[in-house]
Design a protein around this nucleic acid. Structure first.
Lengths: 337, 337
DNA sequence: CTGAAAGCGCTAACAT
DNA sequence: ATGTTAGCGCTTTCAG
């Protein structure tokens, strides 16, 4: 009854060594650096490995080599569809490189984030931090110990891939101006979000350049539910156009405005950010800044792997362009009050 | 220039042993089975561990114990929003239990799925297979070697959590009948999908019970893009109601029908399956079978962990209820042709 | 209850 | 080019 799970013995390099007559170290070499052994030896060993259905034990390999061939991807909230594309991108690229993909949800908490990271430190070769909640100092310190790429965050000494919100926000602003809008409200996201600050700064700057009235409302939690509060607050200002921190918030606003019988874009125009899944089939479809988020995921992986191969390399920082995708949620200024 | 990454020495149990004067084995016990040592010893050792900021090396632990504290979750396509609820559920529950969450995309390929699984076998304690593409035999064989929970799939000897499509489909059918519809078309998903077959069978059965004309179209790939073909095919049949394999397909159909100027639900009613993100804000909002998918993820983890603790336990199989969520995409039969 | 010793499977010097 | 020898950090007998 108390069978203690008779762990089945797996094939090891020693079995291959015994089968071929070579030493275990030679087997190891033939398998992991085929260039360092005789061609014939390599062939024999690899044939034996295949025959015995040998599968390398990554734990044991990691123990000696220090490399785990695992990268973790931290997101602040798996629920957020923004990450769909990112995860897809990292997943693709990691698999292509033979790395495992460890997904971690930091639940929007800096503490949990750093706790998870120290706990996992020895199980991973590097990490991709999407929307890190860590302070700049903490991030820089972490990067000294763990190869890192931050998404949408720039910190000296830390590699990063950022989506160029400023230019996107500028495009959105000009789009709204061209439609006749003269007052734009920014619906702010979480205060600890770097992207949120970047977007607001970009809007302020664009507003300044064009002599436009801009103001900010919020902060609102970055979810669809917050859309109601954001929509109500926006209506209250009497402004004719709003740019939301992200699409989730924008879609939530659309829902609320529809409930309140406000016509979008007839009475008010809404712009989102990110172009997530759903932005093209919500009602009305959402004008938004299309972010190449999947590509960001792929690039982050490439940069990270490059760094692993050459730890002495420079801390690169990549900026990816955005563009405005105009759909139904923006339109000309209402003709009369 | 050629600094070969001077791997920083981490704190090990030996350091704690040296600091406290105990043997490494005692330290190990105090840390992993505090019950087996003197209370005072335990306290001293744990204090020292905290002081030295000791972090156990999971690789080394796994090497001897065979337990990795890692569970992998396989999905057939990370892109599919259906999985996000599942991933959220598994993530939550695994984190609560101190397990790591290894996400794997099998890309709808049985080969890739089994390849990944054998490759990872020694790095994981168990796996949750969402929409496995493996044959029943292969799955049963795998389950003999690796603790497993299958989602939406039942195979003898394999633990599973399935969403009760039949009862949901029956509800949907009755809903459509009550609205006057007399001909229902099923828009089929991928042929190798177990859920797809289950849903079609349920619809056939429900149709039979109510003396209804049912037919099936497809198969269509399970994506929004397939919606166009599905919508066109459905219109072609002249039927007044369609049940789509999943929401992705249904939303794609909605988009296409709108493009073609077909009024939903005025001219035709559409029902989806799963109630994914977006089903409540697409246009029109989608009537669909709400699946407790997040809960399914949590339950799958619980069942898996229970099995790990007691490998001799029975292979449980859990069925979770669905319910019909009626929104705007279904309505009364058009009055006259 | 605690310590000594032996290894888990693999890689990395060091020899040959 | 290959074999020998030590471990990596931890758990687990087996003694005491």
């Amino acid at each position: 009854m108390e069978t203690p799970a008779p762990r089945p013995r797996r094939v090891t390099i020693n079995d291959i060594a015994a089968a071929t007559g070579y030493a275990a170290s030679t087997v190891s070499r033939a398998l992991s650096r085929p260039g360092r052994v005789n061609a014939e030896t390599r062939d024999r060993i690899q044939a034996a490995a295949r025959e015995l259905a040998y599968v390398p034990n990554t734990q044991a390999r990691a123990l000696t080599s220090g490399r785990t061939e695992t990268i973790s991807v931290l997101v602040s909230d798996v629920t957020n569809p923004f990450y769909f594309g990112l995860i897809r991108g990292t997943q693709q690229q990691l698999k292509a490189a033979g790395y495992a993909h460890l997904l971690i949800d930091s639940e929007n908490s800096a503490e949990l984030e750093s706790h998870m990271l120290t706990k996992m430190r020895q199980s991973i070769d590097g990490a991709i931090l999407a929307a890190s909640r860590l302070s700049d100092r903490a991030l820089a310190a972490l990067a000294a110990d763990l190869p890192l790429v931050a998404i949408n965050r720039t910190v000296r000494g830390v590699q990063s891939v950022v989506i160029d919100s400023p230019s996107g926000i500028a495009q959105a602003t000009e789009h709204l101006i061209s439609l006749g809008h003269r007052e734009i409200v920014y619906l702010s996201g979480p205060e600890n979000s770097w992207a949120n600050e970047a977007r607001w700064r970009a809007l302020s700057a664009a507003g300044g350049r064009h002599g436009l009235a801009v103001r900010r409302l919020g902060p609102f939690p970055a979810g669809r539910k917050s859309g109601s509060a954001a929509a109500d607050a926006l209506l209250n200002t009497g402004a004719t156009a709003g740019i939301a921190f992200n699409d989730l918030l924008a879609i939530g606003m659309l829902t609320r405005l529809r409930e309140r019988g406000v016509n979008v874009p007839g009475q008010i125009s809404i712009v989102g950010c990110d172009d997530i899944f759903g932005a093209d089939f919500c009602h009305p479809t959402l004008t938004t800044l299309t972010a190449p988020i999947e590509q960001a995921g792929r690039m982050a992986v490439s940069m990270l792997l490059a760094r692993l191969e050459n730890p002495a390399g420079p801390a690169r920082s990549l900026v990816l362009p955005t563009h405005l995708t105009v759909r139904e949620s923006t339109g000309p200024l209402p003709t009369t009050p």
